[in-house]
Amino acid sequence: MKKTTKLLIPLACLILAGCSKDETPVDTTYPVIDLAYQGASPQQCGTFTRGQKISFKARFSDNVALGSYSIDVHHNFDHHSHSTEVNDCALEPKKTAVKPYLLIRNFPIEGSPASYEAVTEFDIPADADPGDYHFLVRLTDREGWQTLKGISIKIK
């Protein structure tokens, strides 16, 4: 009888149209990454130096609650293009990577706030290949919507 009940519940639901009445609207809004304010970093075509630090400072916001973010810095010596910015920063000639700087870090955003300012910094090894790099930010909200931001940077 259990199976029959399982089938009958949605049936009754449909007939009484009771299911659609109490529908709370689901969240279909992507979170937002803001790098366009004074002090935000990195900026498109920003330059950083080996042996020093890259600072990351951005404002995140969502209509409901934020989830987590992840930072990915990888070389662009082969001129691949997934910058979300239009300007391509006058790329240096293509070259083969020897010891490119690679950074992958993920960060939970505690407490699921609706807005958050991420402030952190990363060391660039002194022996990393200089050249064009991509700085990629991935931000999710609690529902799993993800926004990407790709910034082209240079490391000297």
């Binding site: 519940i9 949605p10 049936l11 934020l66 989830g67 992840s70 992958i104 993920n106 999710t140």
Partner: peptide, 26 residues
């Protein structure tokens, strides 16, 4: 038609990123 799944298999995008296996991806 009317259809009810008691356990539909679904690829759920979570709010998390994975470092080791996921190389920083969602």
């Amino acid at each position: 038609y009317l259809n009810y799944f008691s356990n539909y298999i679904y690829l759920n995008p979570t709010p998390f990123h994975d470092y080791d296996y996921g190389a920083g991806n969602q």
